[in-house]
């Protein structure tokens, strides 16, 4: 695996679960030490990117509650805030 920085751009579109699983795999490989030096550097960089992506997904934690408004034909026309308290 070549260590191109371009390579890790796909990380941004990974779902959280997949990113976490790949990060776990990379940590496993590094801990076992069963990779060559160049590859270890490449996967380390990818691990950094995955970690940052996971952290970003976890920080975007905002509760927004909306109720769908329906038109006379029963189709959704938009949303309005919903307060259930």
């Amino acid at each position: 695996m070549a260590a191109e920085p371009i390579k890790n751009q796909d990380v941004a579109s990974l779902p959280f679960e997949a990113a976490l699983a790949e990060l776990e795999k990379i940590v496993d490989q590094l801990e076992k030490g069963a990779v060559g030096l160049e590859e270890s550097i490449a996967i380390y960089e990818r691990g950094e990117a995955l970690k940052a992506h996971c952290a970003r997904l976890l920080t975007s934690a905002e509760q927004r509650i909306e109720k769908i408004t329906l038109g006379p034909d029963g189709r959704p026309t938009g949303t309005e805030p919903l307060d259930v308290e």
Binding site: A61, Q63, R64, I65, I68, T79
Partner: peptide
């Protein structure tokens, strides 16, 4: 809504 907020606040769309 409470349980979602407790666990992981998200965007919730309620279809009445």
């Amino acid at each position: 809504l409470h349980r979602i907020k407790d666990r992981f606040p998200r965007h919730v769309l309620v279809w009445p």
